[in-house]
Design a protein around this nucleic acid. Structure first.
Length: 700
DNA sequence: TTAGGGTTAG
């Protein structure tokens, strides 16, 4: 990565925004490279002065104690020593394979293993396989790992518990939870590590329910859990946002005498943060006997995610050192909470501070912030992208996502081809973004091709997000039967998002029976999803099932389910203006409503008839004001934009929910009648309105 | 004299 080029990026997107605090330009922990290389020389000199094994062991112990043994520098040194051994024995080969497996360059581990198969007279043994499998896990190299698994079976080592436990971890890490579970089930005498491996991979593979089920099974089998088990269980609680169970786990840890340690405390901290209880996190944080960078970063994340940026910046300042993860937490939380300008401001601060150096995550979030700012800034995103020398898979994927959000499906596909040309292997995120691009641009055949090739050609097992995207692609294009078949064939249980994609398609294509089926599945999985009741209510209303509509309305009231209110914001003359549905609070509301009346008149002249099918019967009747236009927040924002911005300025609106069909039509007409460019970002994507057309080609 | 599982940001 080249800093001077990134500086260019910083200047081209310098945002005029004030953050709660501007960090110090220099980070307290700048690594001094000169010092480091002189220490390398000293250690090597010490090793070379050794005349017997005892002395060598002493140096080794010292290196382990200070942690410098894991400095990549010494692996190269070890390799040089290894290369001078005329006939290394199996033990020596294993040592080198192990060193590479947990190094920054695990692929070397695989290469050494292959060299060993030809260059060593002995066969790989029960020690070799766990190291090689670990390297394959690090690399997410599903095909390589499978081959190694096969070799282990052929060498009659297929039932070794260490090898099986590594394999559970390996398959899980590669996304094949099904296979991970099968290996686990076949493990003859499961020990605590077997259980930990399977619980951990399910927790990390977005299957927290299964992870917790496995934990219960483990208890039933009377296997005593340890601290590592609890880390996995806490991670599952965090993902489920199940604070109550998380608290129970904390009690369980105390009652069962499981030793607290730094990692376990960090996992508890993370659980509290993910469950939204920053207060409990802070109490633990204050009483933790030992804290590391992860503890600080988790706490920082807690405050940032809850929008408490003052406290977040205070934590940031108090941290012993601000590594790139800490910066990334700030950038990503600003970016994800719809504050792309603040995100870019933090990126600028980072650039000014010179250290730490931005990594792939920084660029991903910065690119996302650029794309959030609209079409003009997508060009900036391209500049950021082009200025980065080391593009990892996430940077490429972020760029694909940027194009996907703007409905530029072909551009997304082009970027993907270039990524393959650059020899960067796509991962699960790449395919999610790619499928999303296909969905937004109506590229059905391409979507199908990617979906069915991702596993055989690239070793990426389709996850629930990929299924949801594929169902969406098929549903939107009217291939409802195929979408249903796909859901039925899923190897993993469909989530609410998968059924939601089908439901959306049903709404458009009018298949009410199927919609009811999808709804009942979704209600089981996500009973407090307000949007779902709205959709279901619409479906009942369309089929004239008024009794069901009123029953549903009562249910929603009884359950106390609140909907997310539609809210649009627009920036004009340096400040942000927010509008809610039928809002009367804006100081210029009189002008805005008279502008809307004028718009309504002009739209009527060109034959526009409000499309009331998008009105949400009964459930949203309070939103229905007696106006010529249905006053969704985006219309208010656009009207305000017409009044306040000069004709040459694009009207940029951000909406928290999905844009409705009527607002979409109105925006198209306004862009033509008033000769304005309108950029509307909704929950999922961008719409660029110009000359009466939208960039999404009415396909969203 | 070698072994497997763990927490933060996409």
């Amino acid at each position: 990565m080249c800093l001077c080029k990134c500086d260019q990026v910083a200047t081209l997107s310098t945002p005029l925004i004030s953050l709660p605090r501007h960090p110090n330009p220099s980070s307290p922990t700048t690594v001094n490279n000169d010092l480091r290389s002189s220490s390398h020389t000293a250690v090597i000199a010490q090793i070379e002065q050794c005349t017997n094994i005892a002395q060598l062991k002493q140096v080794h112990a010292q290196m382990l104690r200070t942690g410098i043994f894991f400095d990549p520098y010494y692996i190269d040194y070890a390799r040089q020593v290894f290369d001078q051994i005329p006939h290394p024995n199996l033990y020596t080969w294993n040592t080198l394979i192990r060193a590479y497996a947990s190094s920054a360059d695990p692929v070397e581990s695989i290469f050494v293993f292959l060299d060993m198969l030809y260059g060593c007279s002995e066969c790989p043994n029960k020690y070799t396989y766990p190291f090689v499998i670990k390297a394959a896990s690090e690399l997410r190299a599903l095909l390589t790992g499978r081959a190694v698994h096969g070799m282990a079976i052929k060498s009659s080592l297929g039932l070794d518990i260490y090898i099986l436990n590594s394999l559970v971890h390996f398959y899980g890490t590669c996304g094949d939870l099904d296979l991970a579970r099968r290996v686990f089930v076949k493990t003859p005498k499961k020990d605590v590590v077997s259980w930990n491996s399977v619980i951990t991979v399910f927790a990390q593979g977005n299957c927290p329910e299964e992870a917790l089920e496995l934990f219960k099974e483990m208890e039933a089998e009377n296997v005593e859990p340890n601290d590592v088990t609890m880390v996995g269980v806490l991670s599952a609680c965090g993902q489920k946002v199940d604070l109550e169970f998380g608290r129970w786990v904390c009690l369980y840890i105390a009652r069962n005498g499981i030793t607290e340690n730094l990692t376990l405390n960090n996992a508890v901290l993370d659980m509290y943060v993910k469950c939204g209880s920053v207060e409990e996190a802070k109490i633990l944080f204050d009483r933790m006997p030992e804290k590391d960078i992860v503890s600080w970063t988790t706490m920082l994340d807690g405050y940032a995610q809850s929008g408490n940026y003052d406290k977040a910046w205070r934590i940031f300042d108090a941290m012993p050192s601000q590594d790139i993860a800490a910066w990334n937490v700030l950038i990503s939380s600003y970016e994800q909470s719809g504050k792309p300008k603040e995100a870019l401001a933090v990126f600028n601060e980072l650039q000014k501070s010179k250290s730490p150096i931005p990594d792939g995550v920084t660029l991903v979030n910065t690119l996302a912030a650029c794309s959030q700012l609209g079409a003009i800034d997508l060009d900036k995103a391209l500049e950021v992208f082009n200025s980065v020398e080391s593009r990892d898979v996430f940077v490429w994927s972020a760029m694909i996502s940027g194009f996907a959000m703007h409905g530029q499906g072909r551009d997304a596909l082009d970027i993907f081809s270039k990524m393959l040309e650059a020899k960067v292997n796509p991962n699960a995120v790449t395919f999610t973004n790619l499928l999303c691009a296909c969905s937004h641009a109506g590229l059905v055949d391409e979507g199908r091709m990617f979906f069915y090739q991702m596993e055989p050609a690239y070793g990426v097992v389709p996850g629930v997000k990929h299924y949801a995207c594929m169902v969406d692609i098929l549903g939107r294009s009217g291939n409802l039967e195929e979408a249903v078949e796909l859901i039925e064939k899923m190897k993993i249980p469909p989530t609410a998002s998968v059924w939601g994609a089908l439901l959306g398609a049903c709404g458009r294509n009018g298949s009410f029976e199927l919609a009811e089926k999808a709804c009942s599945h979704m209600l089981e999985l996500d009973p407090r999803n307000h949007g779902l009741y709205v959709l279901l209510s619409n479906i009942y209303a369309k089929t004239g099932k008024w009794e069901e509509v009123s029953g549903l309305r009562k249910l929603v009231q009884d359950l106390g389910i609140k909907k997310e209110r539609g809210c649009s914001s627009i920036e004009a003359n340096g400040s942000v203006h927010e509008f809610l549905v039928g809002d009367n609070f804006h100081p210029m509301c009189k002008e805005i409503y008279s502008k809307l009346d004028e718009i309504a008149g002009r739209l009527k002249l060109v034959g526009y008839v409000p499309n009331k099918s998008h009105l949400l019967h009964f459930l949203e009747e309070e939103d229905m004001k007696d106006h010529a236009l249905i006053l969704h927040s985006e219309k208010l924002a656009i009207a305000f934009g017409l009044i306040s911005l000069s004709p040459s300025q694009p009207i940029q609106v951000v909406k928290n929910l999905c844009v409705c069909g009527d607002c979409h039509t109105v925006a198209k007409l306004i862009s033509k009648l008033y000769g304005r460019v309108i950029l509307l970002r909704d929950r999922y994507r961008f719409h660029h309105f110009k000359d009466g057309h939208c960039s999404c080609n009415d396909y969203w």
